[in-house]
């Protein structure tokens, strides 16, 4: 079936099976390999994307559900050759080791910061509760989100 939606800011039409999982559509058909599949069952968060600005798991969505939606993947965060402040903070704070969970953690952090622009560390932990990382021990990820929240708030103020 033909499905029309916006992907990382641009209108797109795909022609695929209605029940194709969004993670497969993104990775295999569209070549956007940022979102990762790990558990395939909604427990690890590595496939997180934004749908109409809200963090969702692309392994638990079917392509048909994208109709008319605004999708953001980690590939859509950098602009004008510059990384998003969250991505910069992940690099700066050493929040990336193997990197497999990173795109999902970044997308979950965006969802958190949209709802709560200045979260306490405990709130960051809660916001990232659905993103498993086997390398970092989480502290550096929390450091990165905390640092990014400060930078993002400063940029939003005139």
């Amino acid at each position: 079936m033909k499905i029309d939606f916006r992907l990382n800011g641009a209108a797109i039409q795909v022609d695929c099976a209605a029940d194709r999982r969004v993670i497969d559509l993104l990775r295999e058909d569209l070549g956007l390999t940022g979102a990762k599949e790990s558990c395939g069952a909604g427990e690890c968060g590595s496939c997180a994307i934004l749908v109409d600005g809200e963090g969702k798991l692309s392994c638990l969505m079917l392509a048909a559900q994208l109709e008319g939606r605004e999708i953001t993947t980690v590939e859509g965060l950098a602009s004008e050759g510059r990384l998003h402040p969250l991505q910069e903070a992940f690099v700066e704070k050493g929040a990336v080791q193997c990197g497999f969970c990173t795109p999902g953690a970044v997308m979950a952090s965006l969802d958190l910061l949209r709802r709560n622009p200045n979260p306490a560390r405990a709130e960051i932990r809660e916001g990232l509760a659905g993103n498993l990382c086997r390398c970092t021990g989480y502290q550096k990820i929390i450091d990165a989100v905390e640092a990014a929240s400060k930078i993002m708030q400063r940029r939003e103020r005139p």
Binding site: G42, G45, E54, L57, A108, D111, E126, G130
Partner: peptide
């Protein structure tokens, strides 16, 4: 209940 992404869905 579960995690933020699951609560969003």
């Amino acid at each position: 209940l579960a995690s933020p992404a699951i609560r969003n869905m």
